[in-house]
Simulated scan of single mutants.
Amino acid sequence: MKNILVTGGAGFIGTNLVTKLLAEGCKVTVLDNLSPQIHGEEPEKSVLYRSIAGKVAFIRGDVTDRADLRRALAGQDAVVHLAAETGTGQSMYRIDHYMKVNVGGTSLLLDILANEPHSVKRLVVASSRSIYGEGKYVSKELGAVYPEHRSAEDMSKGDFEVKYPGSSRLALTATDEESKLHPSSVYGITKQVQEQLVMTVCPAIKVAPVALRYQNVYGPGQSLSNPYTGILSIFSNLIMSGKPINVFEDGTESRDFVFIDDVARITAAAIMDDRASGYVFNVGTGVPTDVMTVANALNRKLNGNSPITVTGNFRIGDIRHNFASLERIERILGFKPRVSFDEGLDRFCAWVRTIGAVTSDYEGSLAEMKSKGLMK
């Protein structure tokens, strides 16, 4: 596995993975369209792109273009398919675009591998915790249950907890890879289809598949200007800009935040380690952290004084909680996260201070969702 193609390799996860692969002596090709939403209006000047420029065989192209994919696949031993649109909220109104890029790009990649000569032996696809929807809970009366999407009517009344028919209050538990897949956003649907396409087609064409269901990845280098990146980037940029932070729902919603170094390490292992072949793995820390904790920690570590307000607003398609069970990935690949959330946040905030405030259309993205009835 010396020749590796990384689609979306100029993005946040991609550049960190590429750096690790180069350090291990791999020859890396990157196919990336340098999307302005991620890289800005002058993408060739973006920090992410410049971190790999001149170190890889770079193809500025698109995974929805057959000629670009053919060119990128030539001579490759393995492919890491990271290229995708990633905004949960944005996916709820840019539906056709998300389907074309995420599902269309993956199906085109597999179509080429199924019908044309190639040397690819392994395909690693970036899946997502979003495919689990509201995740896994334990009911005192019913045992393990998988709640359906929360109703806008309940949330409008300030009731944000998940519910299940015939059960009293549910207890959150870690979501394992055998849990029900029922995404609550278009983005989640596209990631589920991507994963299923890869895990179904690859064994039939003698390419070893691996799917990595990433939790919320964060760390130095992630886009601070992209309003769809996630709360760590959004909140830190608001703090650096001296703006208030408005927390959705009641502030106790939680996520599993996994540091970029751990993600790059396990993704490289998924390429190289034969034990990974044919498996789907959660990639996270196994620890949930609530949004208010995140906001307060960022304010403290960035020496900010941004007022934090719990608004009760909510977005259609958001989930309440989710954190990963790591039993499978630890048992099969020996993976344990090395970076705690506190240490990772220190490293992230140190980097943010070197960047300072950047221009972001976060407020515009919220206004657009409100105009479409997707934010209440």
Rank of each mutant, 00 (worst) to 15 (best):
E153K: 15
R169Q: 02
G54L: 06
G105N: 11
K191N: 05
T267V: 05
I13H: 00
H182T: 09
R265A: 15
K157W: 01
D77N: 11
R71W: 08
G373P: 07
E343Q: 15
P203A: 08
W351E: 02
R169E: 14
Y93W: 15
P244A: 13
V103D: 04
P117H: 12
V280G: 01
V201S: 01
S168Q: 05
S184V: 15
V294P: 12
T173I: 03
S360H: 13
Q196D: 15
G105Q: 08
E368A: 14
M99N: 13
C349P: 11
Y98G: 03
P227Y: 01
M240T: 08
L345I: 15
R331H: 13
R213L: 07
V207G: 12
K55A: 04
K370G: 07
F281K: 00
P36E: 08
S127Q: 05
A23W: 02
D62G: 05
G251Q: 04
K180C: 12
M292W: 07
T267W: 12
D256G: 00
R94Q: 13
G364K: 03
A126N: 09
M92L: 03
L170W: 00
N299M: 11
L142Y: 01
L110A: 11
N322C: 08
V56Q: 06
L142K: 13
V352S: 09
M99Y: 09
C26P: 03
Y132I: 10
R255D: 03
A350C: 08
R265N: 12
P117Y: 09
M369Q: 03
S119E: 14
F12R: 08
M92D: 00
E249I: 01
A297S: 14
G75C: 13
T293I: 12
V210Q: 04
G54Y: 06
R60G: 05
V247E: 06
Y228G: 02
A297N: 01
A324M: 10
D176H: 10
T86W: 07
F248Y: 12
G14N: 11
W351P: 00
P183H: 02
Y93M: 08
